[in-house]
Design a binder for these strands. Structure first.
Length: 479
RNA sequence: CGAGGCGUGGCUCAGUUUGGUAGAGCGCCGUGUUCGGGACGCGGAGGCCGCAAGUUCGAAUCUUGUCGCCUCGACCA
């Protein structure tokens, strides 16, 4: 049992220290390596492959709705950034500046994009003249830089990868429709591919994006009960259009301002995958996003025929459409098992001399460690079925976790009590006044996560101030 | 940016209190035996002790500065 002890030592137990557990998993699963540049991370193959799958799936979903990809410059001239007042103020504290080109100081300094609204606006102002030019549905996959004061792999870093969609529409209604449409795509993506259930809603004015009319969000609940904003979609109205002069001639030849949206999802979502599904043995990847879905493990691979059979099974499974690898390193089987578990590979197929003789292989699920004996002839079908079941079970478990960690409060005392002692979301009515939001934050460190689309009436008044309640809000402690 | 902790082979750390020129385990390379939950033997490589000044005959060890990392806050995706 000394061997098991060693395993446990490798990763800190999540109950003991969740933050340390997270860091351990990120490192041991080889998702990230720290770089020499402050706050910047090196995303290793195991991590980047997850991002590539996210890109592939999401990009396809975007394109089904008519979105096209573009690439914008990574620099923004200061004058351009200045055009929308709220926007500059919101981002000023965290932008990096380029002040010199080669050996010469620049006449105008350039900021390294923290987000590209201003560039898209400048672009749209040039290419949009007529209602026939609308809508414009552009997206880019890129990295952005925000000079964060403290950093954590995936959750917060000075540079991170994301996609940012920017659209321009003729009418307010169309922009709002697009804003919600993209939010729904994020929510569907999280549920269907990442097995992460989310709460959809709108941000309060205090929490909304700098320069937006309305910000919508999907909020996910991590295993430790903290919330993670996992995707956002903003409706800008015509605010940016007025600041940047983006106008078109309508059918009556009247000049109109466009209505815009933007929406983004970042590598932070990988942090969510880790913190929603991981366990004390490491990462657990949802089958539909796992870069390697099945690892074939030859046992006693030096023995006649074992490796050949392992490769044959791999080929059979690849033929059936799965992402499969063989671990033919000369490590001991126990080592390989642990490695597969740390990396979160959904299934392993064990194949040794005994199995070959018996005409079957053994499938082991990463999430439950259930072992299933399967005759060779049924392997592909069983692997497919098991991956499907695992994907569904993971979503069901995450849903159960979310639902069992949503509380409601009728009084402010009850709220404070719950927030302090029960990790998760607390539903409570709100008058709409920012003062109450600030008080809650002051008293409890919790913030408003969102005003959910699915509203309920818990009390008639705002428990904080006693004024009439306007909205039910999900409150929680956030990453 | 505030509070606390930490930087010594790839990793985890000992050595710092009391200055004398660097160690262990794991990993790595070679080789043989092993192989159903992190195997073992033998042989080997690898570190100007985060960086920079200072004190000293002499600094991993003392002083100052600086950079980076971790945890918790404030800010954000």
């Amino acid at each position: 049992m000394a061997k098991e002890k060693k395993l446990v030592e490798a990763i800190t137990s999540m109950n003991e220290d969740f933050a340390q557990w997270y860091t351990d998993v990120v490192r041991k699963a080889e998702l990230v390596e720290y770089s020499n540049i402050k706050g910047c991370m090196i995303i290793r193959p195991n991590g980047y492959a997850i991002w590539e799958n996210i890109q592939k799936r999401l990009d396809a979903m975007f394109k089904e709705t008519g979105v096209e990809n573009v690439y914008m410059p990574m620099f923004i001239p200061e004058s351009l950034l200045q055009k929308e007042k709220d926007h500059v103020e919101g981002f000023a504290p965290e932008v990096a500046w380029v002040t010199q080109g080669g050996l010469e100081p620049l006449e105008e300094r350039l900021c390294v994009r923290p987000t590209s609204e201003t560039l898209f606006c400048d672009f749209y102002a040039r290419i949009i003249q007529s209602h026939r030019d609308l809508p414009k549905l552009y997206n880019q996959w890129c990295s952005v830089v925000r000079w964060e004061k403290t950093t954590r792999p995936f959750l917060r870093s000075a540079e991170f990868l994301w996609q940012e969609g920017h659209t321009a529409h003729a009418t307010e209604e169309e922009a709002e429709e697009r804003t919600i449409q993209m939010l729904n795509i994020y929510a569907d993506f999280c549920e269907q591919y990442l097995a992460i259930p989310v709460i959809k809603g709108r941000k309060t004015d205090k929490e909304k994006f700098a320069g937006a009319n309305a910000t919508y969000t999907i909020e996910a609940l991590m295993h430790d009960g903290k919330a993670l904003q996992s995707g956002t979609s903003h409706n800008f109205g015509d605010g940016f259009a007025r600041a940047f002069g983006i106008q078109y001639s309508d059918k009556e030849n009247q000049l109109q301002y466009v209505h815009q949206t933007s929406w983004g999802l970042s590598t932070r979502i990988i942090g969510a995958i880790i913190m929603v599904h991981g366990d004390d043995s490491g990462l657990v990847l949802p089958p539909r996003i796992a870069p390697v879905q099945v690892m074939v493990m030859p046992i006693a691979q030096h023995k006649e025929g074992v490796l050949d059979k392992a490769y044959a099974l791999r080929d059979q499974l690849i033929e059936a459409g799965f992402q499969v690898k063989v671990d033919d390193s000369d490590k001991s089987p126990g080592w390989k098992f642990s490695e597969q578990e740390i990396r979160g590979i959904p299934l392993r197929v064990e194949i040794g001399p005994k199995d070959i003789e018996a005409g079957h292989a053994i499938i082991v699920r990463r999430d439950t460690r259930e072992k299933i004996t399967v005759p060779f002839g049924e392997l592909s079908a069983k692997v497919g079925e098991t991956l499907e079941t695992m994907q569904n079970d993971m979503l069901a478990r995450a849903k159960a976790h979310l639902e069992s960690h949503i509380y409601e409060a009728k009084t402010y005392d009850e709220f404070k009590e719950t927030i302090a002692n029960k990790p998760g979301f607390v539903k409570m009515m709100w008058c709409g006044d920012e003062a109450c939001e600030l008080k809650i934050k002051e008293d409890t460190t919790a913030t408003s996560r969102c005003m959910p689309f699915r509203q309920e009436t818990i009390t008639e008044i705002c428990p904080v101030c006693g004024k009439p309640a306007k909205t039910m809000v999900y409150w929680g402690k956030a990453y």
